[in-house]
């Protein structure tokens, strides 16, 4: 097993030890799912086919959102707080002298975390939703495969965005403000509150082009069968494009950060 695979496994295992937190999280996601599902039902009763979804698709969208909420780390967290703290305290010095790539290391660890969260926190709310609501499920196994692939790329995009937030700590020495702004932006532009395709005009068009839509909107649309054929490939390429651009930006910024900025203390 390669180093980064081992790091991913340890990320998975680490999060799997917090059992009470997992149970509490499942409960929270389920309650929020219920509240949002009934809100969406009221909304789609008034405006059927809003954003091109029928009511069943809209409710399905809610439960996909709850299943992916923590997986794509909408509100940040995971490696983010840990690495910011390491930069602030100066412990990042240890990460830097190791013969391992800082970004690849934390990406691997975050992928491990996301894999655990998809399984540990995603399945139960989705089953709950499927049990009590009429959901639109993928028609073919292949759709499931593309959905999982899309979620995986979504996690990478989410990581790349959060990594940029973390790097700001090299200059600001405190990631609190940027983390909050980033969390709000992610909440809105990922489509977690409302699907991006219900936003009208320019706002909607821009929102759908921003990287955050790769976190939830794109995977959800693949799940719901909105994208098919070449549209599906285009959707995946859109996500992958953002992943590459953002990871690359993070890399460049990381090089500047480690060269220019004093490693704190000690």
């Amino acid at each position: 097993m390669s180093l980064y695979a081992a790091v991913a496994v340890s990320g998975f295992r680490r999060h799997s030890t917090y059992r009470v937190a997992t149970a509490a999280g499942i409960f929270t996601n389920t309650v929020f799912g219920l509240i949002m599902a009934y809100t969406y039902i009221a909304l789609w009763d008034q405006r059927p086919h809003l954003g091109g979804y029928d009511q069943s698709m809209a409710i399905t969208y809610v439960w996909i959102g709850q299943a992916l909420f923590i997986t794509v780390a909408v509100l940040g967290g995971g490696f983010q707080d840990e690495l910011i703290e390491r930069i602030r305290s100066g412990d990042v010095a240890i990460d830097l002298y190791r013969p391992a790539d800082l970004q690849a290391w934390w990406l691997a660890s975050d992928l491990g975390r996301a894999a655990f969260h998809l399984i540990g926190r995603g399945i139960v709310p989705m089953l709950f939703g499927a049990l009590f609501f009429d959901l639109t499920m993928p028609g073919t196994p292949l759709t499931w495969v593309f959905f999982i692939l899309s979620v995986a790329i979504g996690v990478v995009v989410s990581f790349a965005l959060r990594y940029l937030v973390v790097l700001s700590a090299f200059w600001l020495m405190d990631g609190g403000g940027v983390t909050t702004i980033s969390g709000l932006a992610t909440m809105f532009f990922s489509g977690m509150l409302l699907p991006l395709n219900v936003f009208p005009g320019t706002l909607g068009e821009v929102a759908r082009l921003l990287p955050w839509s790769a976190l939830l909107q794109v995977p959800a649309d693949i799940f719901l069968g909105v994208h098919t054929g070449s549209g599906l490939l285009k959707a995946l390429a859109f996500q992958a494009g953002w992943a590459v651009v953002l990871l690359g930006t993070g890399r460049a910024l990381q090089a500047v950060a480690t060269r220019k900025v004093v490693v704190q203390g000690g």
Partner: peptide, 17 residues
């Protein structure tokens, strides 16, 4: 840095690796 890292060991009393 990376090439050197394979040839050196570092222990920080106040931090843990």
């Amino acid at each position: 840095r990376t090439r050197l890292a394979r040839r050196i060991g570092v222990v920080f009393g106040q931090r843990t690796t």
